[in-house]
Computed example of a mutant assay.
Amino acid sequence: MYRYDEFDHDFVQARVAEFSDQVQRRLAGEITEDQFRPLRLMNGVYLQLHAYMLRIAVPYGTLNGKQLRMLGHIARKYDKGYGHFTTRQNIQFNWPALSDIPAILADLASVEMHAIQTSGNCIRNVTADHFAGAAADEVADPRPYAEILRQWSSVHPEFSFLPRKFKIAVTGAERDRAAIQTHDIGLHLRKNAAGELGFAVYIGGGQGRTPMVARKIRDFLPEADLLSYCTAILRVYNLYGRRDNKYKARIKILVHETGVEEITRQIEAEWQELKDAQLKLPEADI
């Protein structure tokens, strides 16, 4: 699994300090709940009926022992002794006091975890097969690609205020245990006839009040083009996705209303402008 470098440590700790100040201002009544809402959502904090809820990212479902023990400590000290693992490989604590959340985030930062982009209209936690790296039917381990996507999407300046939340899943196995066709982008690692590794690309899946199965828009995308193609998809969605009705703002609605052929044409046209630029993955990164 990826280990933080100096930049990661500094960035996460700075976010903890920033949010701590915002919480203190909210508790002091210096800002209203409406003013606080976009600030807390950027840090994974929801307001439920009776309490705040904190959602913590577990990138592609991978935890080490130190991180798991820290989650247990947080559950015992700040919640009711338990948390809820979600279907998208996050963990939620449903009863923390708002005044305690900065301390929770500081504890998480000490074990290289955070709650950034676990809420809000941005690219959420990237998920993968829970048997990744050990599955007998695996063409390739999806976790390195999920990590590349995680780093690319973190606080992305172009995609931090999308029409609606955006979810990406990656699998490298024959059996789709990551449920990629219930995601906004689903990526299925496969090999072409020449034995080269790449992805089948799906878009427009989702559950909720309007469940839809994602549609395949590319049978094979070379692995080096992963970021440029995802950028093309998100640019088309960011431009044409609805912002007038949150129930019709997901990319699945855009695919349904535009038609898969037309939206594929738009994505491919955008990708032609991107594919040979700086977003091509170097062999060393892959």
Rank of each mutant, 00 (worst) to 15 (best):
G195V: 13
K252W: 05
A200P: 04
D219F: 04
Q272R: 14
I217P: 02
V255A: 13
E158W: 05
I263E: 01
R190A: 15
L279S: 12
L197G: 01
T210E: 04
D176T: 09
I233T: 12
L226T: 10
D244L: 08
E257N: 15
F199S: 04
G195C: 07
P163E: 10
K167N: 08
G198K: 01
H183Y: 11
S153I: 02
R164L: 13
A173S: 15
E273W: 03
L221Y: 10
R265F: 14
I180R: 07
I168W: 01
G198C: 00
Q207Y: 09
L197A: 04
Y237V: 08
T264S: 11
G186D: 02
L254M: 13
A232L: 08
E270H: 08
H156P: 04
Y237Q: 03
R177Y: 04
Q151I: 13
Q181S: 15
P222G: 01
G208R: 06
R164T: 12
S153V: 05
F161I: 11
E261K: 05
I267M: 06
H188N: 13
L239W: 06
G206P: 02
I168Q: 03
C230T: 14
I267G: 03
T231G: 02
R250I: 15
V170G: 05
I253Q: 05
A179M: 14
L239M: 07
N245M: 11
T264P: 05
E270N: 09
